[in-house]
Each structure stands twice: as C-alpha cells, then as structure tokens.
Design a protein around this nucleic acid. Structure first.
Length: 238
DNA sequence: GCGACAG
DNA sequence: ATCTTGTCGC
C-alpha cells in the first residue's frame, strides 16, 4: 500500500470556492502536515423512534495489513437525547454535537476523518463533513449515499470511475458552474457514492483516500464500520 | 404552484 | 435515519 499525500493545501470550506480557482494549476504542497497513521469514520444513528441520538467513531490503522485488512485501533459511542429534527441542508446541527462528544472519548486524534454525508457538496458549501472538520480542526471528507445538490452524469461501470458533481456558484452570480464533488463508482454494479472535500483536503485527494479504503463493499471501511456501530447492526444481527 | 430534499 | 424476511447473485 502506497503512502498517499494528505494535504494539497490548507483551506477552510468557506474559502474553497475562491481558492480553488486561484490555486488551479499550481497546487502547493508546502502545508502538508502529519503522515496518516489513523483514519476515522463517523456516523450517527438513532434509537427509540429518534428520541436518542447515537454517534459512533471507528478508528482504523493505516496502512492496512493486507488487501482491505484494516485494523480497528479504537472506537467510541456517545448517546444523548436528540435536540434537532432532520432538515435537509441543516444536518450539521442535528449530528455534529453528538459526533464531537464521541470524538472526545478517543485517546488519540486521527489524521483524517471520513464522514457519512456531504462535505462542500452542499447548497451553502458547508455540509456535515465540512462542519465537523472545522470544529475538530482536522482534515475531513464526505461520503454520502445520496445527492443533496448539484448535477452529474453517470460514472463509468468500473470501480474507481467517477463523474464530476457540478453546481451553480453560491450566490448564483458570475459564470455559473463549479465542481463541488464527485460521483464515484465504489463497486461494480452498485449505485455510486457522492464524495466531496470536507475540510483541508482537495477533491482529488479525497477520492484517492476513499478508493484506498474500499474493501469489497460500496462504502469505504471507516464509514461502513461506523455505520454498523451507530445503528447497532453488529449486535442486532445476533 | 410544482418538484427536490445528505441522514 | 428507522421498521424488517426472504432472496438473488458473486
């Protein structure tokens, strides 16, 4: 397994749109930070008809021992009463508080965080992955199972094939379109996932990491395992 | 008014 | 997100 670079540049999602254009063609890597040893996956589940919010974080060691053989280094769960209803576009306010509490239970911070949801592929360019990244001050990326906004074509049939997710610029003025994410075929014969930069990493880098963390399932390991822990599918199915 | 709408 | 059995396919 090759060691992939984590940072293309340091930027916050709010600045991403302006910087993307300015840095196009001359991406600097001087801001690369720590090497990646720990990758975290985050997801939120609900219990008791949504009354209880259940946040789960699973930390995996990088690189994996073998093909898709990731070692679970640590994991944490935090439960609390649900405060906010689900409102498309405002998911952060419902999930981020619980996710942060779960992170506080970890003994060590990961170098990269994969979140179940959108990064900057959001109407205001601030999806859960971006929002969480800002609060954690860690590089994050979003992997969503469905589209929130933007348009796209059908990605190729092979694993790794992807199509750009484009949307009109925030504010709706100027020359219009911008790439906010990618529709990635993470597995053959399955509906694609929506990958986007969350915080402090580019779309290209986000795609590299997602593909690098794919097992033989649709979702990358960090997110897949966090998903299981959040919805208790691990103990439920037994 | 009519769709679209992460988890 | 969540409620849920069997079933088709690699």
């Amino acid at each position: 397994m090759p060691s992939l670079p984590l940072h293309d540049w340091n930027l916050a999602p709010i600045d991403a749109i302006a910087l993307q254009k300015r840095l196009a063609g001359r991406v600097e890597r001087k801001d690369r930070l720590d090497p990646v040893h720990r990758i975290a996956g985050v997801d939120i589940g609900f219990e008791q008809d949504g009354e209880i919010t259940r946040a789960a974080v699973v930390v995996l060691a990088w690189p994996p021992a073998g093909e898709g053989a990731f070692e679970v280094v640590e994991q944490a769960v935090h439960r609390e009463p649900t405060r906010m209803p689900y409102v498309p576009g405002l998911l952060s306010f419902r999930e981020v508080p619980a996710a942060l509490a779960a992170f506080e239970k970890l003994s060590a911070r990961p170098q990269l965080v994969m979140v179940d949801g959108q990064g900057i592929a959001h109407p205001r360019r601030l999806g859960v992955a971006s929002h969480l990244g800002l609060w954690l001050d860690l590089p994050t990326l979003g992997v969503a199972k469905k589209r929130l906004c933007g348009r796209h074509g059908e990605p190729g049939p092979a694993r790794g094939d992807w199509a750009p997710l484009v949307d009109d610029r925030v504010g709706g003025r100027g020359d219009g379109r911008e790439t906010i994410g990618a529709v990635l075929r993470s597995r053959e014969g399955v509906k694609p996932v929506f990958v986007s930069s969350g915080h402090r990493l580019s779309l290209a880098t986000a795609l590299e990491w997602v593909v690098a963390c794919l097992g033989r399932t649709k979702l990358p390991e960090p997110t897949r395992l966090a998903d299981r822990l959040a919805s208790r599918r691990d103990q439920k199915r037994r």
